Structures are given as structure tokens and as C-alpha cells.
Computed example of a mutant assay.
Amino acid sequence: MNAFSFACTGCGKCCNSPPTMSLPELFCHRGRFIGCLAIGRVPRRRIGDRVRAWGHETVLDAADIAAFDSIAHTLLYRAGDTFSIMSQGYDYPSLARCPALAEDGRCAIHLSGKPLTCEVVPLDPLVPDQLQHLVLAGRNQSASYIGANCIQEGERTDATLMIAQGEIKDANARDALARRRRELEREREVWGHAVFESLRKDLFESPAALARIAPGGFLTISIVPALLAVAGMSAHCRQLCLNYIDSQLALIDRSIAQALLRRRLEDRPVTQELRGFAQAYYRAKALLATPLPAMGAESGPPSSLSNIEAYLSGADH
């Protein structure tokens, strides 16, 4: 039947790492989440491909490929291969928890700015609706969800029917997925294209650099390219970015200090990466000291600028 039901128990098992977050969400929680950019290599799908997930299999047809292409056209980036560029939270994987989890294992920001992507869980905005059952089938058996029993195959009396007959049946899930896709489209419009172009030569058109991103995998880099893409738009945008950078530098210092106290060998590469993030922030602060006219800022229509300022402030959410 390819039907799955879902009932969140609030156990926190899926909250085992920082989530993907929009730039405004990172600004809102700048003292809690370290921000970064995650660049993923998205496998290209073709008619006749077999997609399997724990006993479920689908042979992709023309409609499936058209749906994947539609998502790629509006949310992804193409340079030979297809890539995703998303802002997200970052932390030491050894902690195996989201920075927003309270001591009791519950979300501390559930009622005060919980990231939209958390509402979408366990669905995937980069997968067409008719194939979301494969996402649930895979997650149902993944290590992160074992023991949670929140995803159940078939229709259940104690859970909400999420997926059936290639459709998302739950209205709340449908709405969250649509809002997350609109959010990703807005991110692409506001800063994603600029970041993609800034990285095109050194990453997306460099076979040696691309070798760092396995198919289906991703690479984390500093979020500074996204900040520079929006900071030059107006004095207000620049100040928002500077405020964010100052908060991030303080948070990185605290995170590294805590890691040094833990004295765990597996934390060392992450500490080095965080120090690299900090260096990138300091360089960005120096660059943002340049007067706005020299940065080419405020060149867009006033209405466009006000919309972007409202977006970064979270006022249009």
C-alpha cells in the first residue's frame, strides 16, 4: 500500500544534530546555533531508475522525473551535477543532540521560533510528494529512529495517516512541506544564487574540489558567503550581519572552550573547522567596514530592499 502513519512522541531521537535553518532563523537564534552552509551533491534521476528503501521499491517514470526536475528548477543549482545549498546549524557531532534540546530532552524553542524544517520532519522537501513513502520507509529503519516508533507502516488508530497512495494525506504535513519549499525558494532568490556564482569557479567547476563531495553527501563551509550576499544590500542588512557575526564569534569561543574541557579526540577536526569559521568572520567584519557605496549596496528598488530587510528580520514570516 505504501502507506505510513506518524505520531510524534517528543522523544527527541530525531533531534540528534542541528537542523537545516533559513538565514532569518539563524539570525533569530544567533546565540544558540552556529551557522554554516551545507553544499550537497544531489543524485540525478532518470526514467527507469529503481529507488529502494527497506522493502519498498519504485521504478521512476516520466512523471517522477518531471517532479524531480521541477524541484531542481526552483530549489537547487546545476553546474553539470545538481547541488543543494542550504544554511543550517552546526555543532560537534560527538554531542549527538540539537543545541535547542533542554535538559529534559524537550525542545527549548518549540514555542519560540522552532525552525520550519522541524515541522516538516519526517518528510523531505527535496523529494516529490508521490515518493515520500520511500523517505518514511528509510527513516523508519534508520538508527536515528529505532525505538521511537513514531513512523508506522500502514494506517493506525493511534497515529495520523501521513502517506497513502502516493499522496500526503495529513493537511498539516502538506502545509509545512509547502512552506518549507517556499522558504528554500526565497533563500535561493535572496542569497543562494549569489553564493552559487561566487563558488562556481573554485568549487562547482573544479573536479578536484568537487571530489570532496560524494554523491548524496555534503560539504560544510563558512556561512560568510551568504552574509556577504545580503550585507551589501543596505545599511540595515549590513548591521544585521555584523550583529550576527559578533554573536557567532562569542558562541564559537564558548563551544570550543567546552570541547577542550571534554578532551575528546574526535572533536579536534570540528574545533579546527570552527576556528576556520571564526577567521572567516573576522575577515568579513573587516570587509563590512567598507562604506556601502563602495560595496555596490542599495542599488535595488526601495521596495525590494525593504522586503529583504523584513525577510532577514523575520518580519515577513
Score class of each variant (00 low, 15 high):
Gly296His: 06
Ile252Lys: 00
Leu75Lys: 04
Ser84Pro: 02
Gly89Arg: 08
Ala159Ile: 03
Ser5Thr: 09
Val230His: 05
Tyr90Cys: 02
Ile245Cys: 10
Arg78His: 14
Ala143Glu: 15
Leu101Cys: 01
Cys150Arg: 11
Leu126Tyr: 12
Ala148Met: 06
Val270Cys: 13
Gln279Arg: 07
Leu37Ala: 11
Pro215Gln: 04
Ala229Val: 03
Phe83Glu: 13
Ala211Val: 05
Ser198Met: 12
Gly89Glu: 11
Arg174Met: 06
Ile163Arg: 00
Ala79Val: 04
Arg200Asp: 13
Leu161Pro: 12
Asp170Cys: 08
His133Leu: 03
Ala231Cys: 05
Arg106Asp: 15
Tyr92Leu: 15
Leu136Ala: 07
Leu76Phe: 06
Ile252Phe: 06
Cys98Thr: 11
Ile245Gly: 05
Thr58Phe: 13
Val127Met: 11
Val120Pro: 03
Leu265His: 14
Gly147Glu: 09
Thr117Lys: 00
Ala235Ser: 10
Thr271Ile: 15
Asp49Phe: 06
Val195Leu: 09
Leu305Val: 14
Arg179Val: 11
Pro43Glu: 12
Ile245Ser: 06
Asp61Ser: 12
Val135Phe: 00
Ala137Pro: 09
Ile39Leu: 04
Arg41Asn: 10
Gln239Asn: 02
Leu101Lys: 02
Tyr92Ser: 01
Thr220Cys: 07
Gly276His: 10
Asp246Met: 02
Gln130Asn: 15
Asp124Ser: 02
Ala66Leu: 10
Ala284Met: 01
Ile151Lys: 01
Leu37Ser: 12
Ile168Arg: 00
Gln258Phe: 07
Val230Glu: 04
Pro301Ser: 03
Leu76Cys: 13
Leu131Arg: 03
Thr117Val: 13
Met233Asp: 15
Asp124Ala: 04
Arg268Pro: 00
Lys13Ile: 00
Ile223Asp: 11
His29Asn: 08
Asn243Gln: 14
Ser313Leu: 09
Ala284Pro: 00
Ser70Pro: 07
Cys36Glu: 13
Ala214Glu: 15
Ser94Arg: 04
Leu265Trp: 14
Asp81Thr: 05
Ser142Arg: 09
Leu292Asn: 05
Leu242Ala: 04
Gly296Asp: 12
Asp69Asn: 06
Gln248Ala: 03
Thr220Glu: 15
Gly276Arg: 03
Cys11Gly: 01
Thr58Ile: 13
Glu57Pro: 01
Leu134Trp: 06
Ile252Tyr: 04
Phe83Leu: 07
Ala63Lys: 14
Pro115Cys: 02
Glu167Gln: 10
Leu95Gln: 12
Val127Gln: 14
Gly40Thr: 10
Gly166Gln: 09
Glu185Trp: 14
Ile39Asn: 05
Tyr145Ser: 03
Ala66Pro: 12
Glu205Thr: 05
Asp175Pro: 00
His317Lys: 09
Thr117Trp: 05
Ala235Cys: 06
Cys241His: 06
Glu189Lys: 06
Ala164Tyr: 08
His73Arg: 12
Ser255Lys: 10
Met86Phe: 09
Leu219Pro: 00
Phe83Cys: 03
Thr160Gly: 10
Phe6Ala: 02
Glu309Ala: 03
Pro99Ile: 01
Leu199Phe: 08
Asp64Thr: 09
Ser22Ile: 01
Asn149Lys: 14
Leu134Lys: 02
Gly154Ala: 05
Asp253Lys: 15
Glu155Gln: 15
